[in-house]
């Protein structure tokens, strides 16, 4: 068993790394000079393995910017970001792609499934980029779909699924590579109340099984399900009471 496979199992610290996320004095500035916008100012954040953290804040508070940094979709202006003990700043574009593929699972507000492509093919996609063989890929994608309660729907295309079902496909896709970190950006933003309840129950189950989850929301009820809530306001971070 290689070190990477061990990491994927998602249980226990590896190589003495206890924090999945370790962010120090992270800043992001858009533009320059007079018109510069400070989206994030000296943010410190650590997330332990198996933690379920909700990031809340008003629209424009910088919480989406923070999520993009954490997901390696955007580069910080200054500060340090360790993911599984690895300094992301030293990775090139290809290595960052590998990191996103292996260590991070994204769940977006708009689901972001590939159109005209079956649920199964959507869930298989990260495994294709990981170079997993066809049969193993299919088995793991089927297992991920079963985990989110979508067995029997693998041949449906996104436009044949409800919003709640599409979001569950997206969660299955995020989980299929066994990432260290599940990043969810307003996952319930486009869902009705019943689907929201289903999705939150799913996150609770994933948390109970030891997944590390960072969830961004503006909804206090959603945040209340998390173990820990951090508030982003005007680019600064503050902790609220732990549950």
């Amino acid at each position: 068993m290689t070190g990477r496979d061990a990491e994927r199992s998602g249980a226990g610290p590896i190589n003495g790394v206890e924090h999945v996320l370790d962010v120090r004095k992270l800043s992001k500035v858009y533009g320059a000079g007079e018109t510069a916008v400070h989206a994030l100012r000296d943010v410190d954040l650590t997330v332990r393995r198996g933690e379920y953290v909700a990031v809340i804040g008003q629209s424009g508070s910088g919480k989406s910017t923070l999520l993009n940094m954490l997901g390696c979709l955007d580069a910080p202006t200054s500060g340090r970001y360790l993911l599984e003990g690895l300094d992301v700043a030293y990775l090139d574009e290809r290595q960052q792609a590998v990191l996103r593929n292996r260590q991070i699972g994204f769940v977006f507000q708009a689901f972001n499934l590939i159109p005209r492509t079956t649920a199964l093919a959507n869930v298989e996609l990260p495994l294709v980029y990981a170079g997993v063989g066809r049969r193993v890929r299919r088995d793991r994608a089927m297992a991920a779909l079963a985990l989110v309660g979508l067995q029997g729907r693998e041949d449906h295309r996104p436009n044949q699924l409800s919003g709640g079902q599409q979001q569950r496909v997206a969660v299955a896709r995020a989980l299929v590579t066994g990432p260290a970190l599940l990043l969810a950006d307003e996952p319930t933003g486009n869902l009705d109340s019943r689907s929201t309840a289903d999705a939150l129950a799913l996150f609770d189950r994933l948390h109970a099984s030891g997944r590390t989850i960072v969830l961004i929301t503006h909804d206090d009820e959603v945040a209340a399900r998390a173990e820990r809530v951090v508030v982003v306001s005007d680019g600064r971070l503050s902790e609220t009471a732990r549950r």
């Binding site: 997901g71 590998v98 990191l99 996103r100 593929n101 972001n112 590939i114 159109p115 990260p126 980029y129």
Partner: peptide, 16 residues
């Protein structure tokens, strides 16, 4: 473009 963005978020390297 959006599909390309999704693929990249899921770990598609530039070469793919």
């Amino acid at each position: 473009t959006r599909e390309i963005g999704i693929r990249k978020a899921l770990g598609a390297p530039p070469s793919a």
